[in-house]
């Protein structure tokens, strides 16, 4: 073995170790499902089905989030069963632990604001949720496909725009907050899911 071969082996080892630590389950169908749910929920909310105040908006989107998590769990479980693999693989644990801190901040922060009795502004909440969810996706993106990190950046940007634009247009109401959620959590997930479906199909061929 010469120096070149040894260097090549070291490079291959590095690549394999990186790939082994990555979450590789198909995320396309999961994101498409979440996107459809987000679009439907956002549209229904904007049409008046999501309640009138910020409190109703929070409860409404909490219910939607529970459904989305249940759907994601069902998809991952199904894939794990299909591949005869355990549900809690090390990459799954890594992805979830990376996402947990910002999501926990979103949940606890929202709950504290509601418990204070001062109803938060809907557009502030939706903007903060987008940023925190984006941070979670960005962190998880280090243990899965790079596209997830980009999706995280997109959510962060959308959240910042939502928070920045709100005061300029005189503070949008509940309807606009629902529409913003439909655009980001709905359309954003749907577009990312469709793109991942194409990538995953190409990878499987």
């Amino acid at each position: 073995m010469d120096e070149r071969q040894a260097a090549e082996q070291l490079q291959t080892i590095r690549l394999l170790m990186e790939r082994a630590a990555l979450y590789r389950r198909a995320l396309g169908p999961t994101l498409v499902g979440i996107g459809i749910l987000g679009m439907a929920a956002g549209s229904a909310g904007a049409a008046g089905w999501g309640g009138r105040g910020a409190r109703d908006c929070v409860l409404y989107w909490t219910g939607v989030a529970v459904l989305a998590v249940a759907w994601a769990g069902f998809r991952v479980r199904r894939q794990a069963l299909g591949a005869a693999e355990p549900f809690w693989t090390p990459p799954t644990r890594r992805v979830l632990s990376a996402m947990t801190p910002p999501i926990a901040v979103a949940v606890v922060g929202t709950a504290l604001r509601l418990l204070e009795g001062a109803p938060p502004r809907a557009e502030t909440l939706s903007g903060a949720w987008m940023i925190l969810y984006g941070l979670g996706l960005h962190a998880a993106g280090h243990f899965t496909l790079r596209g997830i990190r980009l999706l995280g950046w997109a959510f962060i940007a959308a959240g910042l725009i939502s928070l920045g634009v709100g005061p300029w247009v005189g503070g949008p109401g509940i309807r606009e907050a629902h529409l913003a959620m439909a655009l980001t959590f709905g359309l954003g997930h749907l577009a990312a899911g469709a793109w991942l479906l194409l990538v995953e199909r190409k990878r499987d061929q």
Partner: peptide
């Protein structure tokens, strides 16, 4: 060597993985 590299990066891997 490839197998050992993959296993070194994670506590365990299934046969199919």
């Amino acid at each position: 060597l490839a197998m050992m590299a993959a296993l070194a990066a994670t506590p365990e891997l299934s046969f199919t993985e």
